[in-house]
Amino acid sequence: MFNLDLFYESVPILASAAIVTVELTVCSVILSLLFGTISVMLQLSKIPGGYWLSRTYVSIMRGTPLLVQLFVVFFGLPLLGIKGQAFLAAAVAIGLNSGAYTTEILRAAVQNVPEGQIEAARAMGMSTRQIWFRVILPQAFVVSLPALTSEFTIVLKSTPLASVVAVTELTYAGVVIQARAFSAVEIFLPIAVGYVLIALSFTQVSRWLERRFRLLHT
């Protein structure tokens, strides 16, 4: 039987846990963009060792399970003097992991910026840094929006892994309630709906950004 009382009771708790999920996703996405941007710049500028460094980062992040990365970060941070920061550890681990995929997505877009545009900037006296931030990256981000959106819904769905280091995000909250109530459907059904709603709202933001910037490329 579907226990409506349990459903009504758990929704407010789940809602506050959903906020943690959104916060974790947003922080991870920001870090992913940061790591991905730095990594793609290292890879494609002629900084000595940069290419090698970036490729190694991408290979390691793509070649190891996120759960393992999460443990490494969570138990590694205290060695750097940062203790008891489960949320931070989770955001950094997911951000590092996703950053590898963001690197690859951005790389394709960066390499598609016509050489002539870069020459025009260089002929004018712009520095390499200015060319990256004024000419290459703004275009690369717009072109990559659909692929990045899809990557960031994967980030959203990776956040339940943070429960292993006791971040009370949406799925973990569900597990806790279920353990007390001995009933699962009333809890995990709204959780599933919650994830869909969060994913949809991300997609909407991305659509809005795409529409805003579409005119530049048609």
Binding site: Q117, A120, A123, M124, V135, P138, F213, L216
Partner: peptide
């Protein structure tokens, strides 16, 4: 030194 290119090379964004 200013330069004007055959393929314009404007920044589309």
């Amino acid at each position: 030194i200013g330069m004007v290119f055959q393929s314009f090379n404007l920044w589309p964004h």
